[in-house]
Computed example of a mutant assay.
Amino acid sequence: MKLIKTEKVRKKTDEPRTNVAERIYQTIKDDIFSFRLLPGERFSENEIAERVAASRTPVREALARLQREGFVEVSFRSGWQVKPFDFMKFEQLYDVRIVLELAAVKKLCEMEPAPNLEDLKRIWLVRPEDRLEDGPSVCALDERFHEQLVEATGNAEMARIHHEITERLRIVRRIDFTQANRIEATYEEHAKILRTIIERRAEDVKSYLKTHIEASKAEVRKITLHMLYEAQQQHPSSH
């Protein structure tokens, strides 16, 4: 890895420390999400500090935040490590997400007056030729679709818990949108869920939503295993 000249390093460290820590946090998180840092891979604070042109203090702050969120772990003897994938944990998070979202859509079907879903309708109830095709963009919209369904209930605590689960699942969920057929399926299924909420068919929408999330969970596991295998072939020395 090519090191940045000292002048540039000094300029970077002129940033407020909170900004530097945030920048480093986003950089490492993106590396984990993109499999540039593989599950189980070890690294030191010094390596990160050199790479992002910063001192060790904001690097440590960024890593502590990632540790709290469950993305990395630290060992006294061997430094930092990207947390190995724990599919059991991800499946448990998916199960909690299903419980929350089923409760949310049931409430949406029963609310008086009916919830305001106009923003969601503008995005998802569109003609096939008007659909987005960019995976990361659709992934972000998919995440917001599910969060907005929960937010529309008006239950702030349910929305907060759901958001935390969404954050922890993001590393695997975004992988679901690397396949064109999954993007198309997401549009079709979201439109069906929305129309059913509008028609206030609570039991039907719960069935559609559960099937939708379960399909995503199964697809994510399959694609993640494949992508991990591919990434490990390119970085054999990391294991």
Rank of each mutant, 00 (worst) to 15 (best):
P236R: 01
L93R: 10
K107F: 02
R97P: 01
A180P: 14
H146A: 13
K29H: 13
E230M: 12
F87Q: 12
I4M: 15
K192N: 09
E188M: 15
L228Y: 03
P236C: 05
I171H: 11
E184G: 09
S75E: 12
T196M: 04
E143A: 11
K12A: 11
E184S: 15
P58T: 01
A152C: 04
T6F: 08
H190Y: 05
E199V: 04
V220E: 12
K217S: 03
R56P: 06
H163F: 07
I183P: 00
R173S: 10
V82Y: 05
F145I: 02
V126A: 03
E41H: 13
P84D: 07
N116F: 05
E41I: 05
L141S: 07
L37W: 09
H226D: 07
M111A: 03
E151D: 07
H146R: 13
K8L: 14
W80E: 01
P58Q: 02
A64F: 03
H239K: 10
D119Q: 12
M111W: 02
A156P: 01
E167T: 11
L169H: 05
K2D: 10
A152L: 02
S34N: 13
R60W: 08
F76L: 12
K222F: 08
A218F: 00
K121Q: 15
K5T: 09
H226A: 12
W124T: 06
L228M: 12
E129T: 11
E189Y: 06
S216C: 09
C139P: 00
L141M: 14
R56L: 13
A140D: 08
E50Y: 12
V138D: 00
T153K: 00
H239D: 07
V126D: 05
D86I: 06
I4A: 14
R97D: 04
A231E: 00
K217I: 00
T18V: 10
Q234K: 14
V126Y: 08
A64W: 02
I32P: 01
Q67S: 10
I123W: 04
L3F: 09
L194D: 08
C139K: 08
A215M: 14
T211K: 15
R221E: 06
Q67C: 05
N116K: 09
T224E: 00
C139Q: 08
F35W: 07
Q148R: 13
L38W: 02
P84R: 14
L125C: 08
Q179M: 09
R60F: 06
